[in-house]
């Protein structure tokens, strides 16, 4: 673990994401976020996991998808985000190339 990074306990991530503990357990069981530790008492979450957890909760609530579907959606969305970024970078490069 990085000594300079900030970490959250199970209770703290429940509070930070305003989510019931059961929901966090489900999100971890599905591998959507992977805290270090062997169970809720010892789990350690990174601050980056807050936004992923919040996103999973929103999708579960708004799209009425079950948790395994959420896990799939989250990994596809992450991939989509990467592709969008890459697409934008390439477009900019192409525009510069065409301008010359």
């Amino acid at each position: 673990m990085d000594p300079n990074a900030q970490y959250l306990t199970f209770d703290e991530i429940c509070y930070a994401t305003q989510s019931p503990s059961q929901m966090i357990v489900e999100i971890v069981n599905q591998g959507i976020v992977e805290p270090e530790g062997s169970g809720p008492e010892t789990w350690v979450f990174t601050t980056q996991m807050i936004s992923v957890t919040k996103r999973a909760c929103r999708l579960h609530r708004d799209l009425e998808i079950d948790w395994s579907g959420i896990a799939l959606a989250i990994s596809l969305i992450e991939e989509l985000d990467q592709l969008r970024d890459e697409n934008q970078r390439l477009r900019k490069r192409l525009e510069r190339f065409l301008d010359q």
Binding site: D62, L63, A73, I77, R84
Partner: peptide, 22 residues
Amino acid sequence: YRKLARQYHPDVSGHHKSEEKF
């Protein structure tokens, strides 16, 4: 609702007005 929510959910959609629409 499910169909439109999938299309416009701000976590999924790249549409710039998706949040308002959702």
